[in-house]
Design a protein around this nucleic acid. Structure first.
Lengths: 185, 185
DNA sequence: ACCTGAACACCGTTCAAGT
DNA sequence: ACCTGAACACCGTTCAAGT
């Protein structure tokens, strides 16, 4: 059975995807969930808290630990996880922007989810290094480089800053592959 | 002499830097500029247009073509430009987020500024390739990889997703250097 | 051309009640 | 425990005037 809280989060997510945080008005969220315009205050301390709940949920769902499958090699597992990250960002731009936006107030849950995700990324990098498929060196730093490319490529793509035509044509996924190829030597 | 329009942009920028787009209220902007709460409408079609004016100005100021200096080698020139980009983002997070946010309405000026910036980046990459300091290949695609790292590293750093302690400690600038080192072989 | 002041439709948030 | 309805202070935007 779906609780009012779950329904509020679901409706808020729909509004977020459609028009960004500004489109998430507690009045409309309440209306769609079939409650009054300030019933949300009984479940969340305010709009920020409601948005944080969405961000924490998505950060957990999108963690590399979430969508694990068997791959031929450690590098292929890493590549698949990076591709999943980029695909998720391109598919849900507003959630992507939300998660990596400025956070104030109660960030404990978000922080925990981010830390967990980082650990999963490092694990993937270490496995690829152990298989001699990535250069040696501090895995945390190499992880940072890989996620920076995935993150940056996704954000640039979202905002139309990657060329969409001509010989320079590259999508965000291509850039991740380029980096992995360069790293493999 | 400073026009009302210039003063409005300046005050709006101050508010933006301090608290993001939500803190930029036309009422407060007008008040600080010494005019009524809707005088801004005589200079901009609305809040979006005022924010777009800030974004276009900053995009032009921050272009790699803007801060050019003589460097020992083409790679050092490229590295310096990437470092300038990252430093600017970390220094002005709200403007960085604004420029790479969702744009609706009159985006012509912004688009022109972005295209100009891309051309300047490509020039730097081509020079480094000609000096055999970067691998051959489509310069536009290599440029995309480099700017993706700079952009992504800056955004992750801004949101506290780069580790601040321990052996994995790396700031956004370090990641740019790491990529350039890997590319040089 | 540039600006003002009133007005309108919103929104987040608070509060006093209701069941 | 969960919800409602009125109310308050705000905000973007429009409009009719003013100089």
């Amino acid at each position: 059975m779906e609780s009012t809280r779950d329904r509020l989060i679901a409706e808020a997510t729909t509004l977020l995807d459609a028009g960004g945080p500004a489109a998430v008005t507690l009045r409309e969220v309440g209306k769609r969930a079939g409650v009054s315009h300030n019933a949300p205050y009984k479940h969340f301390s305010g709009k920020q808290d409601l948005l944080a709940a969405i961000a924490a949920r998505d950060l957990r769902q999108q963690s590399p630990a979430a969508g694990r499958r068997r791959r031929a090699t450690p590098t292929e597992a890493l590549r698949a996880a990076l591709h999943r990250y980029v695909a998720w960002a391109v598919r849900h731009p507003q959630r992507f922007k939300l998660i990596f936006g400025a956070w104030s107030g109660d960030v404990a849950e978000l922080y925990a989810a981010a830390t967990e995700a980082r650990a999963a990324w490092i694990e993937l990098v270490v496995a690829a290094q152990d298989a001699d498929e990535l250069p040696a060196g501090d895995p945390e730093r190499l992880m940072a480089l890989l996620t920076a490319v995935a993150h940056g490529a996704a954000d640039l793509a979202l905002n139309g800053h990657l060329s969409r035509s001509g010989k320079g044509r590259a999508n965000a996924q291509d850039l991740v592959d380029d980096l992995l190829d360069y790293l493999r030597g």
